[in-house]
Nucleic acid binder design. Structure first.
Lengths: 185, 185
DNA sequence: TATTAAAATGACACTACTGTCATTATGAAA
DNA sequence: TTTCATAATGACAGTAGTGTCATTTTAATA
């Protein structure tokens, strides 16, 4: 019995990201989303009760994956380079996270819950970076006279450095060089 | 003749920044602004025809001042350090600029004009940073094997590094150290 | 083919901000 | 104190997204 669904969560998430990346959060509403999905606006309410829950659910999923991928750094030959590499792959996630201040965070209890989860995941992320740096310090590959928080901050800030030329690989090489050895070289 | 004005542009700009910093751009509308200024909402329309013109005008002024201050770096003993120092003082400007994607940029011709001016100023800023770095390269104080765009990008990204402990001065010291000599030290 | 559970839909009421304008208030000069 | 240019105001109509729900559509099953 029953009727076939015309959309699923994957499509919903995909169009959510596309819409936000292309038009910004101000343009993110169910009317625009429905148009892209080719369904009536009210259909989306059968999947998510409001846009805040939809977007925060998506962001939680993004963050979870990023945090998982950070683990690659622990086994890599050049852990810091691996960190930068993983981090750079999540530039879009970073962009998504920047819209957090514009989300009505008190929309529903579920939204508040999602926000809490996001902060926890963000903490995990920082802690993994911290852990990698600490280990590098102990092996003497990283200096000890600068606060760990500053180094972690700089590393996370690198995601903002625009990718100018060619490949992401080259970007990672250059940024890694700068982060490790500085502009003086 | 005439009647005394109850508010002026300075107050308007001040409350605009405060409102956005405290509540985010989503909360920035004439109703909220009027409440803070203690005037009727319609009063603000005597000063600015819409919120997009108000906010972009303010941002243009912010950017102009920041660009001016960049010149300090040209005469400083440690130009790059000075650059970081000036740049850090404009962390709020940076935060303001991040709301640009959420502004309806086609609101009025004046808004489009302001946006154009902002891009120009942003270009000037980049060019000044570029210029300082170039000069440092020529004096042999900065390596030449990394693309200038990457170094400029990293420098501009430092504004995102959180200020954890104590003074801004210490922040500048640490970030400068990292930018020049890297995590390896 | 008839049944029926689940999905999709369009219409409706609601909310909140926007922009305008006729009216009212103010205060400096005559 | 009267005048009047300028500023402030509140009311009103307009706009756009939100969330709900009764109704319609669909497709698997009997």
């Amino acid at each position: 019995m029953s009727r076939k669904k015309t959309i699923d969560e994957a499509q919903l998430f995909q169009e959510t990201e596309k819409l936000i990346m292309e038009s910004g959060y101000a343009e993110f509403h169910f009317k625009a989303l429905a148009e892209r999905l080719g369904v009536a606006r009210s259909t989306i309410y059968n999947y998510y009760p409001n846009k805040e829950e939809l977007i925060t659910s998506y962001m939680v999923r993004l963050l979870e994956r990023a945090v998982e991928n950070m683990d690659e750094a622990f086994e890599a030959e050049y852990p810091v380079k691996q960190l930068i590499s993983v981090w750079s792959r999540y530039a879009n996630m970073h962009q998504m996270l920047q819209i957090m201040p514009y989300i009505n965070q008190k929309a529903t209890p579920k939204v508040e819950e999602n926000i809490r989860v996001m902060y926890t995941l963000f903490g995990e992320m920082k802690s993994k970076i911290h852990h990698v740096l600490k280990k590098e310090q102990e092996s003497g590959r990283i200096r000890e006279d600068i606060h760990m928080a500053t180094m972690t901050g700089l590393l996370m800030a690198t995601v903002q450095v625009p990718v100018h030329h060619n490949s992401l690989g080259q970007w990672v090489d250059e940024v890694y060089e700068l982060v490790m050895n500085g502009c003086k070289g």
